[in-house]
Design a protein around this nucleic acid. Structure first.
Length: 427
DNA sequence: ACTGATGATTTGCA
DNA sequence: TGCAAATCATCAGT
């Protein structure tokens, strides 16, 4: 306690000594020049410090006495000057406070993502971009779109409610501190500038909380976006119809399952997927078929039936239109995606050694296919039915090429032959 | 939770 | 550049 008194006494002296720095202490000097000993100030300070040791009533009485003391204004003025000087020196170091670039960046980002911008629709552009980049069918896109928007709205809501809480807490705390300072300003010198500075400090402290909030919101948006933009994460199986179309093409071009660019485009259109998805599908299919032909044999036979039935019905229609016609006239007439004939039809045709009246073709093919289907189920493997004429066994040659064991590839997939829309035979 | 299927990506090759 | 092969990540059935 005595130390403090000495310090304060010294401080009061400092006020007078600081004269060379241009600090105006006229009032003190006047008091001193008027014969008031400096000791008086020391006494007052001593009394102030002693207040804390006394009971409340006593302190109140002392306080009143001090407030009425004739030296009080002088002391107050000295303290104000000292404080002003200290504050100025602190301000000189700390006060430079340009808008935080980090906050600005976060604000811009939140605005761009539609989190902090005008209500609703702000995030639609980002959502659309995400949905578009994710690819997939239009339906899926819209589902993703709404899903994305819903999640973004959720983030937005959390952000705004947290921001509101933050602002409320900030203003509450500021008010509290301001009231406290105002209250204290009655007993100690606190200038409005000092209050202002204190408010600034509080806001800076709170802005770090605000930055954290903005940062985590940005992170949440980024995670959300990456989830929607990363195609792998949002992988959806193609619908049944699309898979059927692709399989039909694959198995009807088994000797050379490499669709040309045009064929890919047409398949993509038919399946409502992208060309690259078609490429991916064929890439995967080829490799997986090659790895485990037996596993796919049943599937192959199923599609054989399907394509054969289709081909037969097409040829039936054709033969009805032009009476003396062979069954393959219909299928070979068109060798695009709709034909499904490929080398399969030739196989089926050769199987029976003769042409059928068109009305019988379908049922015969179906019967044979059923038998084969059963056989496949019983044997469950490619090896056992390798001799099955429904699908001539394929082998992968040393180059990894697709080759027909029974027929050279030049025969099964001639350029421009039935159902052959080949782009690359080098594989 | 486990597992096989499947669409997408990566890497290396010709 | 297109492909094979390996791998990843998710889906979907159990």
């Amino acid at each position: 306690m005595d130390d403090q008194v000495r310090m304060l006494a010294a401080l009061s002296g400092l006020g007078a000594l600081s004269q060379p720095d241009g600090v105006d202490v006229d009032s003190v000097r006047k008091q001193q020049q008027l014969g008031q000993p400096q000791q008086d100030i020391g006494d007052i300070l001593q009394q102030i410090m002693a207040i804390t040791d006394e009971s409340l009533d006593e302190a109140q009485a002392r306080k009143h006495a001090l407030n009425c003391h004739r030296m009080k204004p002088a002391l107050f003025s000295v303290l104000c000057e000292i404080k002003e000087k200290t504050v100025l020196s602190i301000r000189g170091v700390q006060e430079e406070d340009p808008p935080d670039p980090q906050i600005m960046r976060l604000d811009n980002m939140l605005l761009a993502e539609g989190v902090s911008g005008p209500e609703k629709g702000g995030g639609s552009a980002a959502a659309a971009a995400a949905a578009a980049a994710a690819g997939g069918s239009p339906n899926d896109g819209s589902i993703e779109h709404s899903d994305y928007r819903a999640k973004l709205a959720q983030i937005r809501q959390i952000y705004h409610s947290e921001l509101e809480k933050y602002e409320q807490a900030c203003s509450e705390f500021t008010n509290h501190v301001m009231n406290l300072l105002r209250e204290q300003s009655r007993t100690r010198p606190i200038s409005p500038k000092e209050i202002e500075r204190m408010v600034g400090i509080i806001h800076r402290k709170f802005s770090s909380i605000q930055m954290q909030l903005k940062q985590s919101t940005c992170e949440a948006v980024m995670i959300l976006r990456s989830r929607f933009l990363d195609a792998r994460r949002k992988r959806r199986n193609f619908n049944k119809q699309a898979t059927e179309v692709l399989n039909e093409y694959f198995y009807s071009h088994l000797s050379n399952p490499y669709p040309s660019e045009e064929a890919k485009e047409e398949l993509a259109k038919k399946c409502a997927i992208t060309v690259s998805q078609v490429s991916n599908w064929f890439g995967n299919k080829r490799i997986r078929y090659k790895k485990n032909i037996g596993k796919f044999q049943e599937e192959a036979n199923l599609y054989a039936v399907k394509t054969a039935v289709d081909a037969a019905s097409v040829s039936a229609q054709a033969s009805q239109a032009n009476s003396p016609a062979t069954p393959n006239s219909g299928s070979s007439a068109s060798h695009n995606l709709n034909s499904n004939s490929g080398d399969l039809y030739l196989t089926m045709h050769g199987l029976n050694g003769d042409t059928y009246p068109s009305s019988q073709v379908t049922s015969n093919l179906q019967t044979q296919a059923d038998t084969l289907h059963r056989a496949t189920r019983q044997t469950g493997g490619y090896e056992e039915i390798a001799g099955n004429p429904m699908y001539p066994p394929r082998r992968i040659d040393s180059n990894g090429s697709w080759q027909d064991v029974t027929t050279p590839s030049s025969v099964t997939s001639p350029p421009g032959g039935p159902g052959s829309v080949h782009s690359d035979t080098s594989n």
